[in-house]
């Protein structure tokens, strides 16, 4: 699943869904082990469950976020924008979903190019104008076209497997007292594998985000509009002053601490993610002229 920005609420719900699933697996496999099922069939069952989870992962994501597939009649503009973009890049049109949330966000999910879903929140639709929305949809379509969901899934497969080895390894320690040292080494290796693959997954996903920004901006030809959308989504747009310079200047005369100062965040000089993305998009815009 690829989101347009970090959103802790949305992330929390999805993570919770998968954690609950993992707990269910754990309890289920523990019960099987309790009834004397051997290690090898246990692993086979575990792998099978992870596979099923992968196959229905998009449904889990849609269900846990409360996103609902919407028709053209309900959201004509959303469909029109998507139609134009998929035509331009030769991609099968994904299903479109809307989540009822005031927090502006969007994500793409799905295992393949042909079964993808792009979901947006109602907050996003209210906040952005059509060109900005086009930028965000193009960003999500770029994720689908680049098979980023698969890339991230494959990258995180290692960490998933390692995570299970860590868990059931401990389980092995308590029940299999004859050969504990080998299992402990396996657990340590699994821990290291998990940690490293976790870091790599995050690095890949950050990089894919930049690529989707770039490709999305190429598809629309309007990098500045995606930059604008990012500014609105991250709340930076609302920090651009609307009060007249002359009014602000006369107020400052009475304030001990001036309202204008260097303490405020400088979106072009600092480099946290959203700022860096906006900066790259603006550099793309510059090259258009």
């Amino acid at each position: 699943m690829q989101r347009i920005k970090r959103d802790h609420g949305l992330t929390a719900r999805i993570v919770l869904a998968f954690v609950v699933l993992a707990l269910v697996y754990f309890v289920f496999l523990s019960i099987l082990a309790y009834f004397g099922i051997g290690m090898i069939p246990l692993i086979a069952i575990g792998v099978f469950m992870v596979l099923i989870q992968y196959l229905i992962s998009d449904k889990i994501v849609l269900w846990s976020t409360g996103a609902r597939i919407v028709s053209r009649e309900e959201y004509p503009i959303l469909h029109d924008i998507t139609d134009r973009l998929v035509m331009r890049i030769g991609l099968k049109k994904p299903k479109l979903a809307v989540m009822y949330s005031d927090i502006p966000n969007a994500f793409a999910t799905g295992k393949s190019k042909s079964s993808a879903v792009v979901a947006v929140t109602s907050g996003l639709l209210n906040l952005l104008d059509d060109e900005e929305l086009e930028g965000v949809i193009a960003h999500e379509l770029a994720h689908i076209k680049n098979r980023d969901m698969l890339a991230i899934t494959l990258a995180s497969l290692f960490s998933t497997v390692a995570w299970y080895v860590m868990h059931y390894g401990w389980y092995g320690v308590s029940y299999n007292r004859r050969d504990n040292s080998a299992i402990i080494i396996a657990i340590i290796v699994a821990m290291i594998t998990w940690f490293v693959s976790f870091l790599i997954t995050r690095a890949i996903s950050r990089y894919r985000e930049y690529v989707a920004d770039r490709d999305g901006a190429i598809i629309t030809g309007k990098p500045i509009k995606l930059a604008n959308a990012l500014m609105k989504i991250s709340g930076k747009m609302s920090r651009i002053p609307t009060r007249d310079l002359r009014e602000v200047e006369s107020l400052n005369a009475f304030f001990i601490i001036p309202a204008i100062g260097d303490s405020l965040a400088n979106i072009f000089a600092t480099h946290p993610p959203v700022e860096a993305r906006i900066k790259r998009l603006m550099a793309m815009e510059e090259r258009l002229y």
Partner: peptide, 8 residues
């Protein structure tokens, strides 16, 4: 550079 100081 700081857009927070782009007063209209």
């Amino acid at each position: 550079d700081d857009m927070e100081r782009w007063y209209p």
